[in-house]
């Protein structure tokens, strides 16, 4: 081989022999350490292909001899997290609600767990801040259709409202208009009377006419002055809060067709401890009795 190698005068390094516009390129080989890292990386990749899932196939992929999967890792992490929580969860499941509420440590855990379960199961209807909406009760306030004590809230969550469960919260307000129990004028009068209970009537004369009708048809459940009855799930009518709206049209619609809102029973879907944590969380939102 003819020795036509050229050296650069300044650096003493060999050139590649290529020249562009008088510029010649030094032939500096890759540093050894760099090459070794490259080789090590190649070896690592080969080993990885054997050990771990890596190659895509048509309908599946190579599994790797270790049998490692992300799902298994996740399952293990969830199991580990559950094991960590189990000390608290088991206590909450075993103790009556009042005792859980009196244990600050358990209560803190239950509130956090309840918040998380609420976001997963309840927020769809009641809203992420539990502020509800028309037809979906606001759980922050002090107005409870079926009662706001810890036990009442727990029972409501457990068995639902008008759900398929035999122990469900259940009542049946007649649809006074649809079932033709009252005429349209009578419904108008009763509605005015109901609004008058919270000092928001628009037609005092109609409200006056509605009074006997209310006493006859409504007072049995809602009370003579509309104070409601949580035993029967009859809403309080004399306060400032309206689950289905407090405009006259809303009230008329409620009387004429009845509302009959539904909440599923969570027993069977959620375990006992989760239901208790949910009840404690909702009770802590500010309206708990």
């Amino acid at each position: 081989m003819a020795d036509d190698r050229q050296k650069d005068d300044i650096t003493g390094v060999e050139t590649t022999g290529h020249e562009w516009d008088g510029i010649r390129e030094l032939n500096n080989p890759l540093p050894r350490w760099w090459l070794y890292i490259l080789y090590a990386s190649c070896a690592f990749a080969l080993l990885y292909w054997v050990l771990y899932p890596s190659w895509p196939g048509v309908s599946d992929h190579s599994k790797g001899v270790l049998g490692w999967t992300r799902h298994a890792t996740l399952d293990a992490e969830i199991t580990a997290a559950k094991a960590k929580q189990s000390a608290y969860v088991e206590k909450i499941a075993a103790l009556p609600m009042a005792e859980v509420a009196n244990d600050p440590e358990l209560l803190t855990f239950a509130n956090a767990g309840g918040r998380s379960a609420f976001g997963l199961n309840c927020a769809q209807c009641h809203g992420s801040g539990a502020a509800g909406g028309k037809g979906y009760p606001n759980l922050n306030d002090d107005d409870w259709v079926w009662g706001g004590t810890l036990d009442a809230i727990e029972a409501t969550i457990r068995y639902g409202i008008r759900s398929a469960h035999p122990e469900t919260r259940q009542n049946d307000m007649p649809a006074f208009g649809v079932d033709e129990i009252l005429t349209a004028e009578q419904i108008n009068d009763v509605a005015e009377h109901v609004l008058a209970l919270s000092q928001s009537a628009t037609d005092p004369a109609a409200a006056e006419r509605g009074a006997p009708l209310f006493a006859e048809q409504c007072a049995a459940c809602h009370g003579e002055r509309g104070e409601g009855n949580t035993e029967l799930g009859a809403p309080k009518l004399s306060d400032a809060l309206w689950l289905y709206g407090g405009d006259k049209a809303d009230v008329v619609a409620s009387i004429a067709a009845a509302r009959r809102g539904v909440m599923p029973a969570w027993i069977g879907r959620l375990d006992d401890a989760t239901i208790k944590q949910l009840a404690l969380y909702i009770h802590s939102l500010g309206g708990g009795e």
């Binding site: 922050n140 400032a240 809060l241």
Partner: peptide
């Protein structure tokens, strides 16, 4: 609290 920003109670 931002969510809800306020809560109306039964007595108004």
């Amino acid at each position: 609290d931002r969510n809800p920003a306020f809560v109306t109670l039964s007595n108004g």
